[in-house]
Design a protein around this nucleic acid. Structure first.
Lengths: 262, 262
DNA sequence: CGAACTGTTGATGATCGTCAACTGTAGTGG
DNA sequence: CCACTACAGTTGACGATCATCAACAGTTCG
């Protein structure tokens, strides 16, 4: 058997955290499978590729700006974010990553990091050496295409965020973000019954949405008052998916985009 | 000789438009060379790949949302933009393309277009069939990496735009955009002496920046009043590059990012 | 000459940021 | 056990930025 992903479906669905005994590649495999079927041999190669994860505690950098990584970081557990800081001190988060994401796959080709990657929560991270990744892409062109596809989907999400920031209200923007996170987590079985572990601060959320902390707090209260969601003790529950989608004008096609990389 | 790119340097530098007699791949080759050296054979393969361009007139779609392209469009001349429209009628432009850009290279893997691509000015566009592109990437892994790199740089630009929208003032945002366009054009020799052809409307610029038309007009006047730039008759001239860079906090490393794809 | 488009200006109000204070909670050390 | 601190969340007041509505000027084109 290549992999324990098929087995613990129920266990994973019922827990709000990744199974700590699952191999570090399991969320990645789930995600790739959602895009295209994987052969047993490909799954084995991935499992062999990913080393055991290390711990990264909250608010510390997984990758620093200006750094020239020689490995790419696979997020195994927790939430991470890419960000840039401005001269006068502001910070903008440009992407949020969930388990199964390579947070800096682009560093395989883009030598110098033009932004940092921070752990929004305590994380587990596997660092895959670039030369091993490069070797894998050379011997497995199909996986190479799937990796390229991953970075393309990152771009697709960036574009949706641009629309959110440029042309939507704070409320719709925030609703959109929660819809997106839900969909991303659902793919890796981390959001059963519209409920998921999401212990980030409102300050982080402000930097994600490009709003002030105070405005985020008030917008959040609007969503709560409309009975769209609960968010207490680091656990987020979407109470009315359809209503949330509606005020967000959310259309998830930009996330998986029924690709055909083979 | 593989290519006429080396020859008409002076002619190109002195004109504000692409030489109509240059092969359609010339701007593309200039751009790729800036990232990594190309072999003669690679340049020849590119030249053979790109068919003669067709004309697309302003405000018409080069690629439509929801479409499933079987070819990718190389912009040979003019400006194009990717955009999304919202339910209530708003439009957000998520990327601006200059000659030498594939405007929808991602459609090679992402089957369905989640956004449209419109011609901001009259354009010339070469459409490269996907199967020929796929064949090229299979026979020329180095070019495949350069194509992947192109889409990664698109993502890098998206991220910078997110910072602009989320955390910068309208003035800094606009200044940033002009700096970026200048750098992109400079690479393909279309911006001699900080002057370039840029005949888009203020309405388009508003959709690029995520601002209202009126606010764009006033912000533009501030930049003009500060003697940072002129923009008349479709010709833009940056009068004070250093001052413009400064108020924009512009740092162009996110554009080429000294990559090493070989 | 009029129609259509682009740019410009003024007036007004909504959205959102900033400043500041206060609450609740968890942890820390005496 | 109780200060004391640190941090996340909350609320009020005020002002800056930006959107909207409307009108008008200049250009191009048929």
């Amino acid at each position: 058997m290549a992999f324990s992903v098929e087995r613990p479906i129920e266990a994973l669905r019922q827990s709000l955290v990744v199974d700590p005994d699952a191999p570090p590649s399991s969320a990645l495999v789930l995600k790739l499978r959602r895009r295209d079927s994987l052969s047993l041999e490909e799954e084995k190669s991935l499992e062999a590729l990913i080393p055991p994860p290390g711990n990264v505690s909250r608010t510390t950098d997984i990758v620093s700006e200006g750094h020239r990584p020689t490995s790419s970081a696979l997020l195994v557990d927790g939430f991470a974010a890419r960000y840039k800081v401005l001269d006068h001190g502001g910070r903008q988060i440009t992407a949020v990553h969930v388990p199964g994401d390579f947070v800096d796959l682009h560093s395989l080709l883009l030598k110098e990091m033009d932004h940092g990657v921070v752990a929004l929560t305590d994380c587990r991270v596997s660092r895959v050496p670039h030369d091993r990744l490069r070797h894998l892409t050379e011997t497995h062109p199909h996986l190479a295409r799937l990796f390229w596809l991953s970075t393309l989907i990152d771009g697709s999400i960036h574009r949706e965020w641009l629309v959110n920031m440029g042309r939507r209200t704070a409320q719709a923007h925030m609703a959109n973000f929660f819809c997106e996170i839900y969909c991303l987590l659902e793919i890796v079985w981390l959001a059963p019954d519209f409920e998921f572990f999401f212990p980030i601060t409102q300050n982080d959320l402000a930097d994600i949405l490009g709003l002030s902390l105070v405005h985020v707090n008030r917008t959040l209260q609007e969503l709560r008052a409309a009975d769209l969601l609960e968010w207490r003790g680091g656990k987020l529950k979407i109470l009315n998916w359809n209503a949330l989608r509606k005020i967000a004008e959310f259309d998830g096609t930009y996330l998986q985009l029924r690709a055909e990389p083979r």
